[in-house]
Computed example of a mutant assay.
Amino acid sequence: MKKLFITCLLLSFSTLLFSQISTSIDKEKLFDFYQTQRYADAATYLKSIYGEDVKDTKILTQIGYCFLMAGNNVEAEKYYSIAYATQPQNLPILFSLASINAKRGNNEKAKNYYSEIVKIDSNNFNVYKLLANLYNEKDSMKLVYLLKANKINPLEGDVAEDLADVHSVYQEYEKAYQVLDIAIKADSENLVLQRAKLPIANQLKKYNEVISSGERLLRDLIDAAVIKDVAKAYYFTKQYQNAINLFKTLEVLSMQNEATLYYTALSYRALKNFPKSSIYTKKTIDEAISPNTSSYYALLGLVYQENNQFSLAAAAFKKGLTFRPNPTIYYRLAKLYDTKFKQTKTALSYYNKYLKSKPSLKDEKEEIQYTKDRIAQLKPTD
């Protein structure tokens, strides 16, 4: 039945198409190109029939469509542009040109074409939706176009979600909530909208709603964002153990982050479990600090050293060690105290720490040998 429907649809399309083009076309051949989705072959065939100097708008758009479906945006734009010059208010042509330019990253040109559509049809939902997609969330024009699209069709889920996101960026949580609420009432099984609503409901302190809706969602899927929102709602309703259980689920899935660890620490603290609270506070700190921080301080220290600012260099190196043991820093501190500060005892200490930090035998072969030789030279004799 499905194949029959598709065949009938193609036959109807081809009937409409072939009623508009020359009888010199081999209709069966062209129909076969469409049916097998060989759009590049269809475009080449049409060009072979009509040549390069085509003036008829219907033929131009047909060839442009074939190139568009074949993924050849350059040729597609060429033919649609010629058609546009003849019929500048043709909506399908304007939509095609805007789409082609959006695909190619020419957003300003795409905006111009979409804007022309708005002048012709100010109630076109699709054009406002497409225009909004060309702006980032912090651009006021994105909000303008999403509001227009949502006003025309407040039940459309994609626009509702995008508009709620923008409202949230501006911290207009009540507006975001209402937009999603209307769309969800029209499509109660839309899990995307339900998930999008949870963090907004949390912001509005609708914690019981978050728990009720979120737990339903978690029966059907494991979603880190949903778990986090429900766990936070449990925390704010003082159901600390439930919050901990959910936050630990994220740890099992290796999907924890600074915020989830922080709330876990707070939950343990509220339960007077101070040892666990301390553990998770430390985990929060570790999560918040980049693993590369010590390397950044190593670089800063090296810059100071190269500028003969040796005290600042030593301070930067030592600061780096407070984040993570770093063989490179130990080595640079050792050389700094050895060659610049002439403090043999301190230099020896850092040389030994460098060797104990297990530097790479392959990448730091010369540094390791230098360190061993220097330790032998600096080591006090009896």
Rank of each mutant, 00 (worst) to 15 (best):
P275S: 01
Q194T: 05
Y268H: 11
A270R: 09
P154A: 09
E251M: 02
N150V: 13
V159N: 03
Q239F: 02
L221C: 11
N190F: 04
P275K: 08
V252L: 12
K248E: 11
V192C: 03
F274P: 01
M141L: 10
N257T: 08
K197H: 13
R216G: 14
A270G: 09
I184G: 10
V166E: 02
E161N: 04
A201I: 01
E172H: 01
I211P: 01
V166I: 00
L180R: 01
L250R: 07
K151F: 11
Y262W: 13
N208E: 13
V169S: 07
G157P: 14
L246D: 06
E251L: 00
I227V: 08
E251V: 01
E215C: 11
S267I: 06
A160Q: 09
N273D: 02
L143E: 02
K205Y: 13
F236V: 03
L221E: 15
Q241M: 00
K276E: 10
N202S: 02
Y207V: 03
D158V: 14
I200F: 00
A265K: 05
L218F: 11
L180H: 04
S267A: 10
Y173L: 13
A160T: 00
A224M: 09
F274N: 09
A201G: 11
D165R: 15
K185E: 15
K142Y: 15
A160C: 07
Y240H: 08
E258Q: 08
E209Y: 11
L204Y: 10
L180N: 09
E251G: 04
Y262S: 12
N245Q: 03
Q194S: 10
K276A: 00
N190L: 04
R216W: 13
A186T: 03
V179K: 03
N273Q: 01
S168E: 09
S254Q: 13
I211K: 06
P275R: 00
L253D: 04
N242D: 11
L191A: 05
V230Y: 07
A231D: 07
V179T: 00
R195P: 06
N242M: 11
L221R: 14
Q194N: 13
D139Y: 14
K148W: 10
S188M: 14
A201W: 07
I184E: 11
L163F: 05
G157W: 13
P275Q: 03
V210G: 08
A196V: 07
M255L: 10
K185A: 15
D165P: 12
